[in-house]
Simulated scan of single mutants.
Amino acid sequence: MNERSVRHATFVIRRSYAATPATVFHAFADPATKRRWFVEGEGWTVEEFSASFEVGGREHSRFRFGNGPVMRNDTIYLEIVANERIVFSYTMTVAGRRISASLGTLEFAAEGEGTRLNYTEQAAFLDRLDEPGEREAGFRELFQALAAAVERAPLDA
């Protein structure tokens, strides 16, 4: 039998966007928009994505990278304040094994004409199947994809 373990970690990511808080918040609230930046991407196959963005609502996605194992993200929305805050819990599963359980808090604030996004994650990484540094790096990549979804390229002069 494999040794069971849990490792707790917290990380914070701060990111600025050249878009209003309402625009950035919408990218989380609208299921079609979120699917594009959150689970789609080069090399990824999305097998399932559903979302009910409301307090108590759930989001479920099942996907894989290349020929890799099936991954699942199961989310429950705990608190939503339009254009200001989203608090949610989620679990990640890979090849049928739960690898983590997390509490995430997104905070949106006006910053000049743009948005300052603060993301805090408190996570329990299970049985050494995932690591805090990998999760943080993954969210940094997701927030880069979010930038492409919400920021408009400057117009040519």
Rank of each mutant, 00 (worst) to 15 (best):
M1V: 05
M1K: 03
N2Y: 10
N2H: 11
R4T: 14
S5N: 07
S5R: 05
S5V: 06
V6T: 12
H8I: 01
A9R: 03
R14T: 15
R14V: 15
R15F: 08
Y17V: 06
P21W: 07
T23G: 04
V24I: 08
H26Y: 11
A29S: 14
A29E: 11
P31Q: 04
T33S: 06
R35D: 00
F38N: 07
E48T: 03
F49T: 06
S52A: 10
F53E: 04
V55D: 07
R58E: 13
E59I: 00
R62Y: 02
F63K: 02
F65D: 09
G66R: 08
N67L: 04
P69C: 01
N73Q: 12
L78Y: 02
L78R: 14
L78E: 12
A82L: 03
F88C: 13
S89I: 05
Y90D: 06
V94D: 01
A95P: 06
G96W: 00
S102T: 08
S102C: 13
S102N: 12
F108M: 05
E113R: 11
A123S: 15
A123D: 03
F125A: 04
D127F: 10
E134Y: 05
E136V: 08
A137R: 14
G138I: 10
R140F: 00
R140N: 12
L142H: 06
L142N: 10
A148N: 07
A149Q: 09
V150D: 08
V150H: 09
V150N: 07
P154V: 08
P154C: 03
L155G: 12
D156G: 11
